[in-house]
Design a protein around this nucleic acid. Structure first.
Length: 488
DNA sequence: ATGTTC
């Protein structure tokens, strides 16, 4: 299954039969739609090194799959379904797969703008980075500073940032520039396991580990002055980017759901092309059960990022006397989630589909009803962070995204090297020194994570974003560079 | 990603 180049930036595996071996048993599956990879030569060569292409051809065999399965330019192998993967299935009878969402349910990114210029921040950069690190608990197993009751937690799971705003975190206006307004409807806290709640309750307002970060950034380059102005972004301005997810809450919900689904498939004698690609049928009570829990995890993640944003504002206030209300949310989004959306399904048909975005960012074009009114004329803001120490991009969704990718784009640099390989190759101490030498303050809970997250463990972010830009999926608006980094 | 093999 070698993808062939079909157009500039587009590779494809045409529908064919897949022969899959399970120990002694051999089974046939048929791809109902093509599997596509959006990449240039540099990225395609890297994506082809792992199981990503095999994984998207497996997804193309799932029930009710529509139009095409896509691996974005940052794709790499994941659990059952590649990270950087997008797939849409019929809401009536199509597959819903937790592997298509991922363990870190509703992981995502927020961008805050500040009224500060780089020159004002540079003299206190180490102090400011330290203040952020102290304000937000970080690291593996990190616990939030909040003491909340079980009733509070249920409200977080059912109502997202509405709970946080009611309890004095952030402002009313923070709802406006956030996907789903920070509140994903259709969650049901009453069916989330006691174990997930026990793990999650102490972690609200914590960063976690791995690729999660808080970054102080400088606007290095304005690429679309009109859109940048509408978003209040100008050259040399200081911004703050927050990247984290639903912590152990989402992880446990995914684990619980996969286990239930595994048992159900076994009982019913259903076999997926990959054991990691378990699924339920959309519209059944089992699918609704997964969705209601997934949405509860989504609300946890929205609230987690919201509370971290609130404390980040506090840190800037303490060090530089910036008023919290002057640090406005530019946009907040998710990149590990399933959404039921209406799309063009080819052959002139439109319909509601389950859009699985796993390490992929929604990118609605100008005029779409789900883009906040203040951004409607430019398209949905899209945040694509690079790896630690490299650029991040602020973009806006464009019309071609509706045809090419179920309104989706890449979500980041995308790993090129496994964590274990990165740890063998790099040393955290050296990575920290190299960043410091480039004028970037670094504060991390562990040196190990700095090695795992070394810039060279990732694909080149300029290439990744360039593919989506050239295809007309997004338009680049601004390039942001890190000046202070905190990590787990 | 994750109390990184309940």
């Amino acid at each position: 299954m070698i993808p062939r180049r079909v157009d500039e930036g587009i590779y494809e595996v045409s529908p064919e039969m897949k022969v899959v071996k399970f120990n002694e048993t051999i089974m046939n599956f048929t791809m109902a739609v093509p599997a596509r990879i959006y990449a240039n030569e540099y990225l395609m060569e890297r994506i082809a090194r792992d199981k990503s292409v095999d994984q998207i051809t497996n997804v193309a065999c799932l029930p009710g799959i529509r139009k095409q399965v896509i691996a974005m330019s940052d794709a790499h192998q994941g659990y059952g379904f590649c990270i950087g993967g997008v797939a849409a299935t019929d809401v009536e009878g199509g597959a819903i797969s937790p592997g298509g969402v991922g363990y870190d349910i509703n992981c995502g990114v927020r961008l805050l703008r500040t009224p500060l210029k780089y020159a004002e921040v540079a003299p206190v950069l180490p102090e400011l980075t330290e203040a952020l690190f102290q304000a937000i608990p970080s690291g593996l197993g990190s616990r939030g500073k909040l003491k909340i009751t079980n009733t509070d937690l249920d409200r977080v799971l059912d109502e997202g940032i509405n709970w946080a705003i009611d309890n004095g975190y952030g402002f009313e206006k923070d709802r406006v520039n956030c996907e789903d307004n920070g509140f994903t409807q259709g969650a049901d806290s009453s069916i989330v396991s006691a174990k997930a709640k026990a793990r999650g309750i102490r972690q609200l307002g914590s960063l976690g580990s791995g690729n999660h970060f808080i970054e102080i950034q400088k606007v290095a380059e304005i690429l679309d002055p009109v859109a940048a102005k509408i978003m209040g972004i100008e050259k040399d301005q200081v911004t703050v980017m927050i990247h984290t997810g639903s912590r152990a809450m989402g992880h446990q919900i995914c684990t619980d759901s996969l286990q239930e689904i595994d048992h159900l498939m076994h009982r019913e004698g259903i076999i997926a092309p990959d054991r990691e690609l378990g699924y339920v049928i959309s519209g059944t009570k089992e699918a609704d059960r997964y969705l209601a829990q997934m949405r509860a995890a989504a609300n946890f993640a929205w609230t987690n990022r919201h509370i971290i944003m609130h404390w980040a504002r506090g840190a800037f206030n303490n060090v530089l006397n910036v008023k919290p209300e002057d640090m406005e949310l530019v946009y907040g989004l998710a990149h590990n989630i399933l959404k039921q959306e209406e799309h063009d399904l080819g052959d002139g048909k439109r319909g509601m589909v389950n859009v699985h975005r796993k390490g992929a960012t929604r990118a609605f074009p100008p005029g779409h009803k789900d883009v906040p009114l203040n951004y409607r004329e430019i398209g949905q803001p899209v945040l694509i962070p690079g790896s630690m120490g490299t650029s991040s991009y602020l973009c806006v969704g464009q019309q071609k995204a509706m045809d090419l990718s179920f309104a989706s784009t890449a979500h980041g640099g995308g790993r090129e090297m496994s964590r274990s390989k990165a740890k063998r190759k790099f040393f955290g101490k050296n990575i920290k020194q190299e960043l410091n030498d480039r004028g970037i303050s670094v504060r991390a809970a562990s040196l190990k994570v700095l090695a795992e997250e070394a810039p060279l463990a990732y694909k080149n972010i300029d290439e990744v974003v360039g593919v989506s830009h050239n295809l007309g999926i997004v338009k680049k608006v601004a390039r942001l560079v890190p000046i202070g980094v905190t990590k787990g």
